[in-house]
């Protein structure tokens, strides 16, 4: 991954856009918990934006269903380059318990090429904060290049 100036700046002010691709709302609540007082990702400069065109990071929760795959692809394409996708929860990483269901495509990687995965059902808000903090400090490097995806654990 070439390190352009813009990527450097994205690390310092990651603006999030949240997309639920068909999950149970468990991970959504944890995302909200990461935004609210105890974990407060605004410390890193993260803001939850209302329009995908403003955002740098797409947060995906839930398994990608056949119904939402088109919307997910469209929203990701609308985001201005450079952009990063983060899958939160086991479902968004691989499909989880819904994998193989008649209406489920699988993880977010079925639609988007490079996804940072935060596994868990649901992941602790601390893990979400830790992933964003690692991104902020540019310490995600050593864990990438395994099949196109990056795995972060606390």
């Amino acid at each position: 991954m070439e390190e352009s100036n813009s990527i450097k700046l994205i690390r310092k002010s990651p603006w999030l856009f949240h997309f639920n691709s068909g999950g149970c709302n468990g991970c959504d609540i944890e995302v909200v918990a990461a935004l609210t007082p105890k974990y407060d990702v605004e410390r890193l400069g993260a803001v939850l934006t209302a329009s995908p065109k403003h955002a740098d990071i797409l947060i995906i929760t839930g398994p990608v269903t056949r119904q939402t795959a088109g919307s997910l692809k469209m929203i990701y394409e609308q985001m201005a380059d450079p952009k990063i996708a983060i899958a939160i929860g086991t479902c968004a990483c691989s499909g989880g318990v819904f994998r193989g269901g008649y209406n489920v495509l699988g993880g977010a990687e079925k639609v988007i090429k490079n996804v940072i995965c935060i596994p868990g059902c649901p992941p602790n808000p601390r893990q979400i904060f830790a992933a964003l903090k690692k991104l902020y400090e540019n310490k995600l490097e050593e864990e990438k290049n395994d099949g196109g995806s990056k795995l972060t654990k606390e």
């Binding site: 100036n5 813009s6 310092k12 007082p37 605004e42 400069g45 201005a80 450079p82």
Partner: peptide, 30 residues
């Protein structure tokens, strides 16, 4: 709201709005 607000970018996060501005300038336009 009992949060901290911008914290890591600059002392007390004081450069955060300026970094936001620079970031948006360097991004491509859709």
């Amino acid at each position: 709201q009992k949060r901290v607000g911008p914290y890591f970018t600059g002392p007390g996060g004081i450069f955060q709005p300026f970094v936001d501005f620079l970031k948006l300038l360097s991004k491509t336009e859709a």
